[in-house]
Computed example of a mutant assay.
Amino acid sequence: MSDSLRNKVVVITGASSGIGRSIALESASRGATVVLLARRLDKLEEIAAEARELSASAAFAVKADLSLASDIEAAFAEVKEKVKRIDYLVNAAGFGKFEEFMEADMQDATEMFQVDVLGLMYMTRLFGRLMLDQGSGQIINFGSMAGKVPTTKSAAYSAAKAAVIQFSNVLRLELKPFGVKVMTVNPGPVYTNFFNIADASGQYVKNVQAFMLDPDDVAWEVVHYFGSNKRELNLPVSLAALAKLYNLFPGIGDKLSLEFASRK
């Protein structure tokens, strides 16, 4: 517990559960004013109340469906009415679905890109402009180890997360001269309700227990790097090492992915 984020404003998408919720509460525990965005307003209100108790600062709940441009624009306008500045934008909203691509419903892929990529990009564009006007701020975009290491049954999801990673890499270069930082967070599997949709059978979660992360631990790591110049946060260390190995030795990487990371 500290006041390291006192008088700072943190906007978090996907804040109603999982990593987004954990980042909201971790930020609040350090004194931040948090603005929580997600589709479930009732859940957001509960988390906002908990955040206020932790921070003794304001906490706001804003309903937004990131698959809808109109919702993003309305949420942005509402946030601007509630706070005077934005210090950190955490784009944590997203979902995935694991299935063989040739058997997949292309509507699922469309919806994944709409939320995980285009919704994130639109949020970044709107709030990033405020940061440019301020001359400061940090954008934290959630990619995934899936965007760095290919695994079976995740073609569309991996493509979406790879898009987020490269988008963030380019954005980092464009915004650096203006004092706005960009960090990408690439976690492996995390104990969240993400897998309620992504892995309805439960088989993948069962097979990757050794790599599973706690959302509170991920949140601590992310908030720890608020304000830093860190480019990427890759978790856990074992999968981060696999990602480096894959870039150096893609043939070996394919074999290791099939043996250890493609257990869906």
Rank of each mutant, 00 (worst) to 15 (best):
D3K: 07
L5A: 09
R6K: 14
V10R: 09
T13N: 09
A15L: 04
G20R: 03
G20F: 04
R21F: 00
R21D: 04
L25A: 03
A28K: 00
S29P: 07
A32L: 05
A32Q: 03
T33Q: 09
T33G: 08
T33E: 12
V34N: 01
A38N: 02
K43A: 12
E45D: 12
E46L: 07
A48Q: 11
A49F: 11
A51G: 10
R52Q: 11
E53I: 09
A56T: 10
A59K: 02
A59T: 05
A59G: 06
A59M: 03
F60L: 06
A61V: 03
V62E: 06
K63Y: 05
D65S: 08
S70T: 14
I72T: 05
E73G: 05
E73R: 08
A74H: 01
A77H: 01
V79N: 00
K80W: 00
N91Y: 01
A92N: 13
A92S: 15
A93P: 01
G96R: 10
G96S: 12
F98K: 02
M102F: 15
A104D: 11
D105V: 11
T110R: 13
F113A: 06
D116K: 01
V117H: 00
M121G: 08
Y122R: 10
R125M: 15
L126M: 14
R129Y: 13
M131A: 07
Q134Y: 01
Q138T: 07
Q138D: 10
I139K: 11
I140M: 07
G143C: 13
V149C: 03
K153W: 05
S154E: 04
S158R: 00
A162Q: 09
A163Q: 00
I165E: 01
Q166F: 15
Q166H: 15
V170P: 10
L171G: 10
E174D: 15
E174V: 14
V180E: 06
V185E: 05
N186Y: 03
N193D: 15
F195H: 11
D199K: 05
A200G: 12
Q203C: 12
K206H: 14
K206I: 12
Q209E: 15
F211G: 07
M212S: 02
L213K: 00
D216H: 07
D217Q: 05
W220A: 05
V223T: 06
H224I: 01
Y225C: 09
N229S: 10
R231V: 14
L235T: 05
L239M: 15
L239R: 08
A240Q: 14
A240W: 12
N247M: 14
F249I: 14
G253S: 09
G253C: 08
S257Q: 01
F260I: 10
S262M: 04
S262Y: 06
R263S: 12
K264Y: 12
